[in-house]
């Protein structure tokens, strides 16, 4: 899937540039973007290392366990297949809480760890094909992509920067829209879970 999308984007860009005569722009964009990716990674490396360091403290102090218990009913509902004491639950909980609070910089590290742990869980279950996403992985990602952030802090900042009379007017509709997209995600995941049960 990702192979086709990636190839499609690259091929389309070159063909399109050939038609519109923007070859030199595309050349520059390719080189600049590669450099941009590295500078993004350097910034990200610092932030992720800082956050994962703090998370490790929180984990050893038992804070993460408490948070996980707080949203335990939701986790059991969305991910019934993950054992109660599995580390994947803690990372998923951290990711979801950071997402809801809008701590964007804290979501990704916990999310990536969650995916790693989910991959381990699949191995423990004895699945041979490790390149295949488990139901938990799919559900976790769909939930993430549905956006869980309640207060769109960035948008409010941009709005006020561009002279909005009422920058925070977006909060209420944003919460409603986020709930709707998340609800659609949850319903879809539960539907897929129910469908999958018969085939296993």
């Amino acid at each position: 899937m990702l192979n086709a999308i990636w190839a499609g984007m690259i091929l389309l860009a070159v063909i399109f540039a050939a038609c519109t005569g923007r070859m030199s722009e595309v050349t520059n964009a390719a080189l600049d973007s590669a450099g941009e990716a590295i500078s993004l990674c350097i910034t990200m490396a610092g932030v992720v290392a800082l956050w994962m360091g703090l998370m490790e403290i929180a984990k050893r102090a038992g804070l993460v366990k408490k948070m996980t218990q707080g949203i335990s009913p939701f986790l059991s509902f969305m991910f019934p297949g993950i054992p109660k004491d599995h580390p994947a639950r803690e990372y998923i909980a951290t990711n979801i809480i950071a997402n809801v609070l809008g701590l964007g910089w804290a979501c990704t590290p916990a999310g990536l760890k969650a995916m790693e742990e989910l991959a381990k869980l699949e191995k423990e279950r004895g699945r041979m094909d490790s390149s295949r996403a488990s139901n938990e992985m799919c559900n976790f990602l769909i939930l993430n992509i549905s956006s869980l952030q309640l207060i769109p802090v960035n948008m409010i900042a941009y709005r006020s920067q561009y002279g909005s009379v009422n920058p925070t007017a977006v909060i209420a509709p944003a919460i409603v829209a986020t709930l709707i997209s998340t609800l659609a995600a949850v319903l879809f995941c539960k539907y897929k879970d129910a469908m999958g049960k018969g085939s296993r």
Partner: peptide, 18 residues
């Protein structure tokens, strides 16, 4: 980014749901 962390290439129903 997430699927790479889990070394997964078969993404199944994720894209549809997303």
């Amino acid at each position: 980014v997430y699927f790479l962390a889990a070394r997964v290439t078969k993404t199944r129903y994720t894209l549809t749901g997303a």
